[in-house]
Write a protein that binds this DNA or RNA. Structure first.
Lengths: 216, 216
DNA sequence: ATCCGACAGATTGGATCCAATCCACCGACT
DNA sequence: AGTCGGTGGATTGGATCCAATCTGTCGGAT
């Protein structure tokens, strides 16, 4: 067993700190503090932060440090606009290649989301939700596209957890996923793209409401 | 005047080393070597490499190091496919917003490309070429889209220089740019998208020929 | 009252050192 | 011949230390 490097584990911890709001948008990321929290020196912290910087999760000002990125409404709309374009491309490419077993794997992932939702475990739910969507995107066999989509999703991570806190949002997500799965079983790519678009629209609406409330 | 940090200057140097082939695709990037070459310690090198990693310019294997990314033909086609989708979006968004002065600025940039080409300065030419295209893309006012496009362009940097070495390629690029500019003057976004597509097609053809020759 | 510069604490940037890991080589054994 | 295990050099990963920069505060001058 080859142990993970500290920068990798730190990267994961940082992501979850941002996801859970322990590090909130706009906060300065003080390296010394994190070094102590994670029990490592500042070097691996800095490398992990560089990775997050290029994903747009944090912003960097030389000699001042790293700050958790704040999403403006314009940013948010741009992220969702780009996701709409790129996810449609991924879905159209992926659907024809999916076998029966792939569809069943997706059904399995969907069940995972719901079971996490039932237990009210938001962290597990966002993780399962991501696996569900990316299982579909990854099936397109376009690794760069997957990577870009990952970056776009991560940009809104800090806000997605808030979205899932609303029980009515969780229910709607479950219903929408079920409809997506049935379109998938029919191999109807266009219907799936359309459902995906609606799914995304609902989420952008809710998240921008959260954003607007926060800015006030 | 605030001096640039070492990691920034190193990042620039690394980019140009990759662009010029001093660091060729597949080469291991030995940190100690670069530290000596640039007169800094390994720390800023590592941070610059992390940035390049997330752009896909280098790949990283824990405990083994960084290697200059090699582009497969499939990668190349994917990059161009994504560029086609995203650049079309940028152009459609940008064209209606362009004022007379913006168009003149673009004409100016085009002249820069040609003057660099006339002097056979490939480095200056690729730089001017990029400024020309991105002046257009950036005008869309979608910063994330610009950033993604930057990453996609950088992924093929190592090969673009080779493309411009052919005099016939340089001439064709100049002709195509001129036609793009005249579509722009008419504010004909659709024509511009079409010309851009052709422009890109020519380049992907030439670059994949280079790639194929290289792999043999 | 406002602006300006000096100073102090906090934080980041970078250099150096040591530990952990990898890898190529080599000899022994099957 | 081929495989296995060990060994040494090379390279990366991380910790610690010091220098450089930033930021807020406090006097003092205007």
């Amino acid at each position: 067993m080859t142990r993970a490097t500290a920068q990798e584990t730190v990267l994961g911890s940082l992501r979850s700190d941002i996801l859970t709001g322990r590090l909130g948008p706009g906060d300065q990321v003080v390296q010394e503090l994190l070094a102590e929290r994670y029990g490592v020196s500042r070097v691996p912290i800095r490398e992990a932060l560089k990775t997050l910087e290029s994903e747009g999760q944090v912003v960097y000002f030389p000699h001042r440090g790293y700050f958790v990125a704040e999403l403006s409404v314009a940013d948010l709309l741009e992220v969702y606009r780009l996701r709409a374009i790129l996810e449609a491309e991924a879905i159209r490419q992926a659907v024809p290649t999916l076998g029966l077993d792939d569809v069943e794997a997706l059904a399995e992932l969907m069940a995972e989301i719901e079971s996490a939702a039932a237990q009210g475990d938001i962290i597990a739910m966002t993780a399962a939700n991501r696996r569900f969507h990316f299982a579909l995107f990854d099936a397109a066999g376009l690794p760069r596209l997957s990577r870009i989509l990952h970056q776009l999703w991560e940009a809104t991570d800090a806000y997605r957890a808030l979205y899932f806190q609303g029980a009515e949002n969780r229910d709607r997500v479950a219903r929408e996923h079920a409809r997506m799965l049935s379109a998938l079983r029919k191999r109807d790519a266009e219907a799936l793209v359309r459902l995906h678009d609606e799914h995304r629209e609902h989420s952008v609406g809710a998240v921008s409401a959260i954003l607007a409330a926060r800015d006030r």
